[in-house]
């Protein structure tokens, strides 16, 4: 692959790859390092990929493998099953517009990794469930299951933040009312 082609690939994919990495990794530095490492691996092995149209999927798959190999002995994620979630959390939708991108990203990071990876590919790149299954190398049914559970968990996280903010504002409001009265 020529330098020009490589530069084009970097220009097209480095931002979405970084955002994918950021949703998976613990810090911005880790995400940048994962992104960089993925392109290093492409520079080493990318020539082996005959079908150039699959370069994007190759990059996402490689980044995901890199992430998995780094965290293998790192973190154990808590088990959360679909049946553990109350029906109302499966059905209600918090107002995402009320949050900034950093808060939304934080909520996404709080969802267990098995759900976080497919969710990020779904949202960031609008990958189909077929493409997600290819990138993560899991069956289609598992992708659907993880998207369904992951979205329910994400909604639950965001709804929790929404309640915290509302509750927090009320306390602040009450305190400031008291302050005004005591000063008056």
């Amino acid at each position: 692959m020529s330098n020009v082609d490589f530069q084009q690939l970097v220009d097209q994919q480095y931002a979405p790859l970084y955002r994918f990495a950021l949703a998976l990794a613990k810090s911005e530095a880790d995400a940048a390092d994962l992104t960089q490492q993925t392109f290093f691996l492409w520079a080493l092995k990318g020539d082996q990929l005959r079908d150039r149209s699959k370069a994007k999927a190759w990059l996402f798959t490689t980044l995901y493998h890199e992430f998995l190999s780094r965290r293998r002995h790192d973190v154990r994620f808590p088990r959360v099953e679909l049946n553990d979630l109350p029906e109302e959390e499966m059905s209600t939708f918090p107002n995402v517009n009320a949050f900034d991108s950093a808060t939304v990203l934080q909520a996404l990071r709080e969802v267990g990794e098995p759900y976080r990876a497919p969710l990020t590919l779904f949202y960031l790149e609008q990958f189909s469930y077929h493409e997600i299954a290819d990138v993560l190398e899991v069956p289609i049914g598992t992708v659907m299951s993880r998207l369904s559970r992951g979205k329910a968990l994400l909604r639950s996280r965001l709804a929790g933040r929404s309640r915290e903010e509302t509750f927090g504002n009320k306390i602040v409001g009450l305190q400031s009312n008291k302050m005004e009265k005591s000063h008056g």
Binding site: V10, Y18, A32, T35, N97, S101, L105
Partner: peptide, 24 residues
Amino acid sequence: AFDTTMTDKLRAIEVPLDLRGSIL
């Protein structure tokens, strides 16, 4: 509607300015 807004929010995450240069 939820999914659309999630996509917009996540795509708005800023990428470090020096990342592209570091990769190349």
